[in-house]
Computed example of a mutant assay.
Amino acid sequence: MENNLVFNIPSYTDDNSAFPKPVHRNYDYWVPLINHFLAKSDTIEIHCWNEEIDTIEEIKSLHIGTFEMFKEENITIFKGKKTSTLSDYLMNNNMNIFGEFKWFTVNFDKGMVPVFHSGHWGTEFFVPNAMEKDIAIIKSVTPTETSFNQY
C-alpha cells in the first residue's frame, strides 16, 4: 500500500533567527534518509536563498556538468542528474561553518516523478507514494518526537 507521507522533525528557532534547528541539535537522521532515497532517484534539485553565497559558491565549485543553476528573485536553484560527487556532497557535507544545515530545499525525482522532498533546512519532509518499507526506515531514523501525517 502506498501513502503520501509528511513528517516534521521537532525543531526550534533562536530568538533572532527564522532558521529552524532540530530540538536535539543534530541531524543524525539526514544521512540514512538521503542514502535510502538517493537510491530511488536520478535527479537532484537544491534550493538556497540568494544571500547564502558561501553555499551557492560551494555547489558551483563541484563542477558537475549536468547540474544547471537558475537564479530567481530570492532563491538560487541547482538541478541535474544524480552523480556520485553530488550524492557524496549531500551525505557528507551538509553543515555550514556555523553548524547549521546548508540547504533550504532538497528534492529527488525519478524521471519527472517526485520521490523525496526536504524543506526548511532539513526539518520538514514529504515523500509521495511512500511504501511501508520507506515509512519503517523513516520512523527508525528520525527522533521519536517526529510528527507524521499519512494520507
Rank of each mutant, 00 (worst) to 15 (best):
residue 106 V to K: 02
residue 133 K to D: 15
residue 144 T to A: 15
residue 90 L to E: 13
residue 146 T to N: 08
residue 100 E to L: 15
residue 116 F to E: 09
residue 103 W to Q: 12
residue 136 A to Y: 11
residue 124 E to W: 04
residue 130 A to T: 04
residue 105 T to G: 00
residue 140 S to M: 00
residue 117 H to T: 12
residue 92 N to L: 07
residue 109 D to P: 00
residue 128 P to N: 07
residue 146 T to F: 07
residue 136 A to H: 12
residue 142 T to F: 04
residue 107 N to H: 12
residue 91 M to L: 05
residue 132 E to C: 03
residue 90 L to S: 06
residue 144 T to N: 13
residue 141 V to D: 09
residue 109 D to S: 15
residue 112 M to G: 08
residue 107 N to Q: 05
residue 95 M to E: 06
residue 121 W to H: 11
residue 96 N to R: 06
residue 105 T to Y: 04
residue 129 N to V: 02
residue 146 T to Q: 08
residue 98 F to D: 13
residue 140 S to I: 00
residue 138 I to W: 00
residue 105 T to W: 00
residue 124 E to L: 08
residue 127 V to F: 03
residue 140 S to K: 01
residue 138 I to C: 04
residue 143 P to N: 02
residue 134 D to W: 04
residue 125 F to I: 14
residue 130 A to W: 01
residue 104 F to P: 03
residue 119 G to H: 02
residue 92 N to M: 02
residue 121 W to L: 10
residue 109 D to E: 13
residue 140 S to F: 00
residue 122 G to R: 05
residue 135 I to K: 05
residue 98 F to I: 06
residue 102 K to Y: 04
residue 99 G to N: 06
residue 143 P to I: 02
residue 131 M to H: 10
residue 122 G to F: 01
residue 143 P to K: 01
residue 145 E to P: 10
residue 138 I to G: 00
residue 131 M to D: 11
residue 133 K to V: 12
residue 120 H to P: 03
residue 140 S to H: 00
residue 135 I to Q: 08
residue 118 S to I: 11
residue 142 T to Y: 00
residue 126 F to L: 12
residue 95 M to A: 01
residue 98 F to N: 14
residue 128 P to F: 05
residue 112 M to E: 15
residue 116 F to C: 09
residue 141 V to M: 03
residue 108 F to Q: 05
residue 101 F to A: 03
residue 123 T to S: 06
residue 106 V to M: 01
residue 131 M to F: 10
residue 104 F to Q: 15
residue 105 T to A: 02
residue 94 N to W: 07
residue 108 F to V: 09
residue 120 H to R: 15
residue 93 N to Q: 13
residue 116 F to G: 05
residue 98 F to E: 09
residue 142 T to R: 04
residue 114 P to R: 10
residue 132 E to D: 14
residue 137 I to F: 02
residue 134 D to P: 07
residue 111 G to P: 03
residue 102 K to Q: 08
residue 113 V to Q: 12
residue 125 F to E: 11
residue 107 N to D: 10
residue 136 A to S: 13
residue 143 P to T: 00
residue 135 I to V: 08
residue 135 I to H: 05
residue 124 E to G: 11
residue 122 G to C: 07
residue 117 H to W: 07
residue 103 W to I: 09
residue 101 F to M: 04
residue 128 P to R: 05
residue 115 V to S: 00
residue 95 M to Y: 09
residue 134 D to E: 07
residue 118 S to L: 07
residue 96 N to E: 06
residue 101 F to P: 11
residue 93 N to P: 05
residue 144 T to V: 13
residue 128 P to T: 02
residue 103 W to R: 13
residue 97 I to W: 12
residue 111 G to N: 15
residue 143 P to Q: 01
residue 93 N to W: 10
residue 139 K to V: 11
residue 137 I to S: 09
residue 107 N to P: 03
residue 117 H to V: 12
residue 127 V to M: 01
residue 138 I to S: 06
residue 130 A to K: 05
residue 95 M to W: 04
residue 104 F to S: 13
residue 100 E to K: 14
residue 137 I to W: 03
residue 93 N to H: 14
residue 143 P to S: 05
residue 129 N to T: 02
residue 143 P to H: 02
residue 95 M to V: 10
residue 126 F to Q: 10
residue 97 I to M: 12
residue 120 H to S: 15
residue 135 I to G: 02
residue 125 F to V: 15
